[in-house]
Design a protein around this nucleic acid. Structure first.
Lengths: 239, 239
DNA sequence: CGCAGTGTTGAAGCATATCAACTTGGGTGG
DNA sequence: CCACCCAAGTTGATATGCTTCAACACTGCG
């Protein structure tokens, strides 16, 4: 059940059978969420952290005028609120963007891991810090890339992250989000997402139909996006 | 010498004398950087992390077309690259925006802390995770706030963060960055930063002259910015 | 005194938002 | 089984905010 997490962490460092055991023991209480349902709400003080087993979720904030900005997209194998373990209070909400199967790690148990398992602790730390690296890349994309490059970049990122958890087959992945959701992630209007998407389509680099994105030309797509996967830190290292 | 760091962490949790001692022991090798000098360069694999003792620094990335985006601003008491401890490789550079006094914590020593001092480890983890919270707030500001609100928000954030390390006096703080640097942080053109700034000035909420920003009307400024300091997690909690 | 960096201003053009209408397809109730 | 409905996607027209370019002002410094 926690295989996606093992794939995720296991892509960055070796996890001993012993550590795997400790992780399995820490992750409990499965639960299902429907699309649009909030997994966690801003202001809450959760005493457990949420691991996505399947489906898509987003962290977001809504401003006074009702505008929503998504600050992160999450897929199977991601902890959506591990940072709440040191932070204590949620400064944003997390919503399911599809039906989502999740499981929980109690903060008491995570705390116990920090007392007894330094290496595992560093890997959990790593996972929050990769979230940070992705945030930075989004800032760069929002501030200085063309909108076409930004959208292309997002697709590249999802492609790589979903590959890690074996959710890409034949250059395709399931992607049930609406253009409105993508607009909230990119900080654009829906209309403009639509028009930008058409540019990528007419370049023959991607298709997006039937809730499925297919990369037709990875090389050209990464070139449009100026995509450099370094920030995902997908390399095995002793950490 | 590491007082700013103690103020920074000490604003979030109690640090025992013992732990303070351990921190002091881990932070070594002071060094000075001149304005525009890089503290760390993208691609490097540093074996120590950099703590700012005084001055301003920025994390940034430069795209192929030469455009620069700043992803974070750092002040005294901030670790600019603690995340490189779990990450190993730098995915961006860090530049001094003023003369900067820094000191280093060797990764070997940080690693030792993770093996022997779980609470201190959680506090270091916390500090990287607050960086992440700030990143998210920047994403929200870039995507969904007006440019005037974005600039106001940045000023609010700096005001609060500098207050923590006692760098605000009489509602004023030293701020030696050019409008071009602020433009790279906001993802705007210099011209537009200038014009946006004038709006804030004509609202009589801030002045910015002689490398000094003064907040004339905090309440109105936070209202323009829709500033909510929750994301800075400035509360004492057992972590 | 002159020069370079920074800030300021105005004009013109482009990119993105907003508004409004229309299309498409899947799901549902009569 | 069909009619309708609703959500999502698409399209075009208009409005606006931001960029770019170019010129000029100010200041500190060699």
């Amino acid at each position: 059940m926690i295989e996606p997490l093992l794939l995720n962490l296991g892509a960055r460092d070796v996890i001993s059978p012993d550590e795997e055991q400790a992780l399995r023991a820490a992750i409990v209480r499965q639960r299902k969420f429907a699309t649009e349902e909030d997994l966690v709400v801003e202001g809450e003080r959760p005493n457990s952290s949420t691991l996505i087993l399947s489906g898509f979720a987003a962290r977001y904030r809504v401003l006074e005028d009702g505008k929503r900005q998504i600050t992160a997209l999450h897929v199977a194998g991601d902890f959506v609120d591990l940072h709440a373990f040191p932070l204590k209070t949620m400064d944003h909400s997390v919503v399911a963007l599809s039906t989502c199967q999740v499981a929980y790690a109690d903060h008491a148990d995570i705390r116990a891991l920090t007392e007894t398992r330094p290496h595992l602790t560093r890997l959990l730390w790593l996972s929050t810090v990769i979230d940070g690296a992705i945030h930075r890349e989004w800032i760069v994309a929002m501030g200085r890339r063309s909108k076409k490059a930004h959208l292309a970049h997002l697709i590249c990122e999802l492609y790589m992250r979903l590959s890690v958890v074996r959710l890409v087959t034949d250059q395709s992945f399931y992607f049930p989000l609406s253009q409105a959701v993508v607009a909230d992630a990119l900080g654009l209007s829906v209309v403009h997402v639509n028009k930008t998407l058409q540019k990528l389509r007419s370049d023959n680099v991607v298709t997006w139909t039937d809730r499925t994105i297919t990369v037709l030309n990875w090389e050209k797509l990464t070139e449009i996006a100026q995509f450099d996967p370094t920030y995902l830190h997908l390399s095995m290292e002793p950490r």
